[in-house]
Design a protein around this nucleic acid. Structure first.
Lengths: 241, 241
DNA sequence: CGATAATTTGAGTGAGGTCAACTTCTGTGG
DNA sequence: CCACAGAAGTTGACCTCACTCAAATTATCG
């Protein structure tokens, strides 16, 4: 590519998009500066605090979002109130299912969260135009499918202790992707959320956390601050894969 | 489109593809007669009997398949032998994950099954060339993701009775898509498979089936022949959604 | 018809649920 | 800075649903 042109292109990237994680590692990385500018005219940054419902189960979808910061939980709720978290989305994930009018789950901010909200129509037009964007979204869908299936094994076949260890390993992997050995992070989920993700009760989660602590596998401070001295050991406790 | 040309096109569809379900409702429906002919040069029909392993967990992928007949189970196995079925694929589903060298689960024929086996390289080239094929696969991935997440709710939050009822509703839906009221079908899974799909033991599955039978919600003959007098009632027992 | 596998049934046990009390955090206002 | 209130998390006692192990029954196939 012509060097001069390339420099020009870079300068055309909208201000707010520069340095945005979604543009580097998320779906926006496939867009041209022109497309970014176009999208940017209609996109909107939004900060929401923990606990905010972003969309309800069965509700009409009017927009999609990039998660810029924070963690969003996706959950299904039964008529009698039983709840199961079916996925966690971390920055810079794309949120929403294009071309599907009605949301099949609820999405709620688990932590304080920043979003880049994209109107439905505009994004869907861009997907039709850019096969690269489509295949990027295809890839994310496949990754989420893998994660969902891994979690099915956890839900169906693991003990409470293994389940809790699995969750800690999962969060550790997102907090510090290539960290080996030890690792520290803040839990983005309350005990109630963890229970809903693992198919357990709050009490069982609490008991297993206490046991893992007494066994020296984790240290906890202020309920949310976790330190894992040996990630491998914890992974083995999680069912070892 | 020119009528004459269209007739010619139809005649160019390879013989074996005419009347094939995958061409009408599966991924092949997006292909042109020319592409079908090209693909057909390298594809191969294959009949396998129940219990045949199609690919092992962690094994290299050399081909993809359309399922023409039968049911395939996808499962994850832990180091100590615990197993979880993470998905069922019915005809005319496409099987395999393009551009991903290593299979993350095992695939095994649950019933006697017929496949149309497509070599990896050829299919991947066609995906790059045809955005329609790509979006078709994207859609199947999203459908599978929805199913996986529905099943997470089943695994995490439902009782044994609800789980067994959920499975029966799932199979009924595939056997007889728009049948309301009553419905009869043959179970494609053994009790052991059902247990591995529901995260239960064989014994618990058996006991719950007996209870559903005694409650008049289902009739069973020869272990595999199921008759459901009232699908709605069964769906309510499954957790009602 | 006999052999083997698949399924059902029974008795006893245990992991995780339920309910309730207690402790620890967090944030607010005096 | 402390006192207090409400929320979040922990701990204990007890119970239940699903698991385990074992035996009986039924289906399948040569």
């Amino acid at each position: 590519m012509d060097a001069q042109l390339k420099i020009l292109d870079i300068h055309e990237v909208p201000l707010v998009c520069r340095g945005c994680d979604a543009r580097h590692n998320g779906v926006c990385s496939t867009l041209t500066p022109h497309q970014l500018t176009e999208l940017n005219k209609h996109s909107q940054r939004k900060a929401v605090e923990a606990g905010t419902e972003l969309i309800g189960q069965g509700q009409q979808v009017h927009s999609y979002s990039n998660i810029l910061k924070g963690v969003v939980k996706l959950s299904k709720i039964m008529a009698d109130g039983r709840q199961q978290i079916v996925g966690l989305q971390f920055a810079p994930d794309f949120m929403g299912r294009p071309f599907h009018g009605e949301s099949l789950m609820a999405a709620e901010a688990a932590t304080d969260t920043e979003l880049c909200v994209l109107p439905r129509k505009i994004l869907e037009r861009m997907i039709s135009e850019s096969s690269e964007l489509g295949s990027r979204l295809h890839n994310q869908a496949l990754t989420e499918l893998d994660e969902a299936r891994d979690w099915m094994l956890t839900l169906g076949r693991k003990s409470a202790r293994e389940k809790v260890a699995s969750l800690l390993v999962l969060v550790a992997a997102h907090a510090d992707p290539d960290r080996l050995g030890d690792c520290a992070f803040e839990l983005p989920l309350s005990r109630a959320d963890i229970a809903d993700f693992l198919g357990l009760t709050i009490e069982t989660v609490s008991r297993q956390m206490t046991k893992l602590r007494k066994d020296g596998l984790i240290h906890i401070e202020n309920n949310r601050q976790v330190y894992v001295p040996d990630l491998d050991k914890l992974a083995v406790t999680a069912g070892g894969d």
